[in-house]
C-alpha cells in the first residue's frame, strides 16, 4: 500500500455510508485546533483501514476501518466536523 495519500482517497469508503461527500467537510483537530477540509488531511492507508492525521500537527484525527459488516469511524482526535450543504 502507498505510504501516504490525503483525504481525497477517503471519498470512496465514506460514500458507502454518507449521502453527502464528506471530503469537503471541515474537520477540527483537537490537538492544535486547526480546521481544514478532510481532503487536505494526511491519510495513511493500511490493510486494516485508513489512519488520518492532521495536516498541521500530524496528530491522529481519525481511523476509518472498512470491515465486512460495515465501516468503523474512530474520531479520537476530532473536536467536530462541519458539513457544508
Amino acid at each position: 500500500m502507498s505510504a501516504r495519500v490525503d483525504g481525497n482517497a477517503l471519498a470512496g469508503i465514506l460514500s458507502e455510508y454518507f449521502r453527502l461527500d464528506t471530503t469537503s467537510a471541515i474537520v477540527q483537530c483537537s490537538g492544535c485546533g486547526t480546521r481544514a477540509a478532510l481532503a487536505r488531511e494526511l491519510v495513511y492507508p493500511d490493510p486494516m483501514g485508513f489512519v488520518v492525521r492532521c495536516e498541521r500537527c500530524e496528530d491522529v484525527l481519525m481511523i476509518v476501518v472498512d470491515a465486512p459488516g460495515g465501516a468503523w469511524l474512530d474520531l479520537r482526535g476530532v473536536d467536530g466536523v462541519q458539513f457544508r450543504g
Binding site: G7, N8, A11, G12, S15, E16, D21, T23, S24, A37, L38, A39, R40
Partner: peptide, 9 residues
Amino acid sequence: VRGPLGTYF
C-alpha cells in the same frame, strides 16, 4: 467501479 467521488479537488 465506485464513483464518481470527491467534491474538493
